[in-house]
């Protein structure tokens, strides 16, 4: 053992001291909801493979208030993920040059969010059309 015991500054909760890092931790944290939601879907898929009774049990489990509560939180988290994904996009993609001018960050974020809104509405319309 080292007898010196040098002072090491604690890093606990380092991100709570700066709003920029609080936001960073929240948007990284959306991954927990993405994982949990994918897990619920995976479980549903496995139940579907087991037949009608198993599938119906999964469907009625989804009506459980705990699940509904989770889904409300997941909806908020995934919507926030969508927002931050496109907000960060100007810094995560290579620069796009249109007509000799670099495409502005706002244009990239704005068009990303517009495409996401269209994709969501398109999905709802598709499901509604198939289920009708």
């Amino acid at each position: 053992m080292n007898k010196r015991r040098p002072y090491v500054r604690s890093m606990d909760g380092w991100w709570k001291k700066n709003p920029f890092f609080v936001e960073y931790m929240i948007h990284e944290g959306t991954a927990l909801f993405v994982a949990a939601y994918a897990g619920i879907l995976l479980f549903g898929l496995l139940r579907l493979a087991q037949g009608e009774a198993a599938w119906n049990a999964w469907l009625s489990a989804m009506k459980n208030p705990w699940y509904i509560g989770f889904q409300v939180l997941a909806l908020i988290a995934l919507t926030y993920h969508t927002y931050t994904w496109f907000k960060i996009m100007p810094r995560t993609m290579p620069p796009v040059v249109v007509g000799g001018q670099r495409l502005s960050a706002w244009a990239i974020t704005g068009s990303g969010l517009a495409v996401a809104a269209a994709a969501c509405l398109g999905l709802l319309a598709l499901v509604w059309g198939m289920a009708r």
């Binding site: 939601y37 997941a74 909806l75 919507t79 993920h81 969508t82 990303g112 996401a116 994709a119 969501c120």
Partner: peptide
């Protein structure tokens, strides 16, 4: 997940 996640949930 950014494009379809919210609507899927």
């Amino acid at each position: 997940s950014a494009l379809l996640g919210p609507m899927l949930v």
